[in-house]
């Protein structure tokens, strides 16, 4: 039974005040400030007037920035798609493994997940660089084959390709873990029933497994999409001048261009897109729960 606050006023205050005050003063207040700034304009370098104008948002939707917004959405969507294709068989294999193999495989997926993001990105840089492991590897094989001429290193870094590879590399565990959780919860006898009734493995996957694991698949997709959309480090380190994402533009407004109101507006656009993705997820999951519990 849940209590009313009056039943234990002291406990209510002791457990309620610290987190609520912290959230209000040190989380919602800073966000509120940049929200206000997003409707402001720069008077001098440090003086910002909140004028209530929508100019910053209008500017964010001009072709130059709209292209970056769309590019970010595209990168995030592509990343999510690749992660899903890569991750579904992995999640499937893990959920049907023996308990011991399951533990080892989960650990293998989690370890990179726990490793510092910066370090993982750096590790990928070392692989993809012009004089990196892949290029020097191919180069070595190239030189063994006579008559091929000098080896031109593949352009693997500082481009869109590198950003997507990096995003997939960083976010794959985000996809695998929820997929695994959803598949693992699945009643195995439903899969057996499908096989028993004459369906092959692929038919079973698409007619039984995927529909039943849909909430888990949706949350895997959203959990991968959101951080990929807001990624800063990956495009910063792996991308070229042409493959900047929205987070990089925001950073520039605050640290070099010093246009805080515009940066604030971009931040809130990013946040709204995040919330929209979450809303979509809850709608799909609720609909699924209504149709078949």
């Amino acid at each position: 039974m849940l209590q009313r606050p009056g039943a234990a006023r002291g406990v209510f205050a002791a457990t309620g005040l610290p987190p609520i005050v912290w959230l209000l003063a040190l989380f919602l207040a800073p966000l509120a400030v940049i929200w206000a700034y997003s409707f402001g304009e720069n008077r001098t370098l440090v003086d910002i007037a909140i004028t209530g104008s929508w100019a910053n948002y209008a500017r964010a939707l001009k072709p130059l920035y709209l292209a970056i917004l769309l590019k970010s959405l595209g990168f995030a969507a592509l990343t999510t798609f690749i992660c899903f294709i890569l991750g579904l068989p992995v999640a499937l294999a893990i959920s049907f493994a023996s308990p011991r193999a399951k533990l080892l495989l989960l650990l293998a997926v989690m370890l990179p997940f726990w490793t510092n993001l910066l370090i993982r990105t750096y590790a990928l840089m070392a692989i993809l660089r012009t004089e990196g492991l892949i290029n020097s590897g191919i180069g070595a094989i190239w030189s063994l084959v006579p008559g091929l001429g000098p080896f031109e290193p593949l352009p693997l870094i500082n481009n869109n390709f590198a950003v997507v590879v990096g995003l997939v590399y960083v976010h794959l565990p985000f996809m695998v873990l929820p997929l695994y959780a959803a598949l693992d919860r699945l009643d195995r006898s439903l899969i057996e029933a499908s096989l028993d009734l004459g369906a092959g493995h692929l038919a079973t996957l698409f007619r039984v497994v995927v529909p039943l694991a849909l909430p888990g698949i949706v949350s895997g997709i959203i959990i991968t999409f959101i951080p990929a959309l807001g990624a800063y480090l990956t495009p910063d380190l792996l991308g070229g001048t042409n493959s900047q994402m929205i987070a990089n533009v925001i950073e520039r407004q605050f640290r070099s261009a010093n246009d805080w109101p515009f940066g604030a507006a971009l931040s809130f656009l990013l946040m709204y897109m995040t919330f929209a993705a979450l809303l979509l997820q809850s709608l799909i999951v609720r609909r699924h729960a209504g149709g078949a519990p």
Partner: peptide, 29 residues
């Protein structure tokens, strides 16, 4: 493999597909 055997099973927990109607369940095979 089970999908190519001339036998069918009634599972202990019935394993009725929760996302399909009764008719769709019966029609599945």
């Amino acid at each position: 493999p089970p999908n190519r055997r001339p036998v069918n099973m009634v599972f202990q927990n019935y394993a009725v597909f929760p996302h399909m109607s009764v008719a769709d369940n019966v029609a599945y095979g």
